[in-house]
């Protein structure tokens, strides 16, 4: 328990949709519906799923950029989901974020040095020449040229901007960094650079990472555990090896079968899902995946499956216990 840096219990985030003249509440978007997980020190948990499955909302709620509707978030043994803004502020130092879009995540009017210095100044960690040394040290750490300090973000490429974002996240000495699709907007070769950088930083600083992504190929390279989300719920969670070798949930298997393999000789059976993700305003009854699941049967439409342990370190929410053999 004490090694759990971040613990999320039954997190729920609903967005009310307002309609009508008086803004009367009409319907609710079930973005995140009862998500629980934990991340240990120095560990990487990847949260994967299609767009719209709520994985970014989980990240933003954990960061308290959004207030959770229900559930608990514990950071280093302190409950943070219900803290008022003033008490939360000092704790923000321990949890930082790197966003997807390297263009909109940096203020175009601030120099790189000012951007990286902002969290250090906010938390009163250094000032004067010490601050400057610290910023320079961070820039070395993410392999940015020193003369970048006085320049504005628009002078940099996407990969370099993402390094600036990572330096900002490292600046206050965070224990955990939430990477919200942090490499999705980058070219493949630059993506690899940034992934390598994150892995090196994790080794060096003992950082925990929550890596939100839709790209399983990237996830396979840097994660310890994977949580697969579908329509606001975690459907399967397992350590990397188990998940990629023996996925249990039909949705996980469909996702894995969609990962391209750079070898034309490899023949695979692809599982094609029909239809689109159902609307999170009216999620399907029973198992949320039953509308697209090739193996769905009666029970799936009425009874919601719970996460149960299938193998050591692997939990899955599915009624089909014998599916792995059947396939």
């Amino acid at each position: 328990m004490s090694s759990n840096l971040l613990e999320v219990k039954a997190l729920v985030k609903h967005f009310p949709l307002k309609g009508g003249l008086l803004g009367t509440r009409r319907s609710v978007v079930h973005a995140v519906d009862g998500v629980s997980f934990h991340i240990d020190r120095g560990e990487t948990l990847s949260v994967v799923g299609e767009s719209g499955c709520g994985k970014s909302t989980v990240g933003r709620t954990v960061l308290r950029l959004l207030d959770p509707t229900q559930g608990e978030v514990w950071l280093g043994g302190e409950r943070i989901d219900n803290l008022p803004a003033g008490r939360l502020r000092p704790l923000r130092r321990r949890m930082q974020v790197v966003f997807q879009d390297p263009f909109s995540s940096l203020n175009p009017r601030l120099s790189v040095g000012e951007i990286i210095a902002e969290p250090i100044v906010n938390f009163g960690l250094a000032s004067g020449s010490e601050l400057k040394d610290r910023v320079a040290g961070l820039m070395d750490k993410v392999q940015l040229p020193r003369d970048a300090m006085k320049r504005l973000p628009h002078e940099f490429s996407g990969g370099q901007r993402q390094r600036i974002g990572i330096a900002r996240a490292l600046a206050p000495g965070a224990d955990i960094i939430i990477c919200d699709e942090a490499v999705s907007a980058l070219d493949v070769s630059v993506k690899a650079q940034i992934v390598n950088l994150l892995a090196d930083l994790q080794d060096e600083l003992g950082l925990a990472l929550m890596f939100i992504s839709h790209d399983l190929a990237i996830v396979e390279h840097l994660t310890h555990r994977v949580a697969v989300m579908y329509l606001g719920k975690i459907v399967e969670m397992a350590d990397r090896r188990t998940l990629f070798a023996a996925p249990h949930h039909p949705y996980t298997r469909a996702l894995l079968s969609a990962v391209p393999v750079p070898d034309p000789a490899v023949k695979r059976q692809r599982i094609l899902l029909k239809g689109d993700v159902p609307s999170p305003i009216h999620p399907p009854s029973g198992c949320r995946f039953h509308t697209r699941c090739p193996f769905a049967f009666d029970r799936c439409r009425t009874e919601e499956p719970v996460l149960r342990e299938r193998a050591p370190g692997q939990t899955s929410a599915c009624h089909l216990d014998e599916v792995p053999e059947a396939a």
Binding site: L65, R92, M95, V97, F99, S104, N122, G165
Partner: peptide, 11 residues
């Protein structure tokens, strides 16, 4: 904008 959210997240 993400840079405003990042500012909030960095206190």
């Amino acid at each position: 904008q993400p840079f405003v959210e990042a500012a909030v997240a960095s206190g």
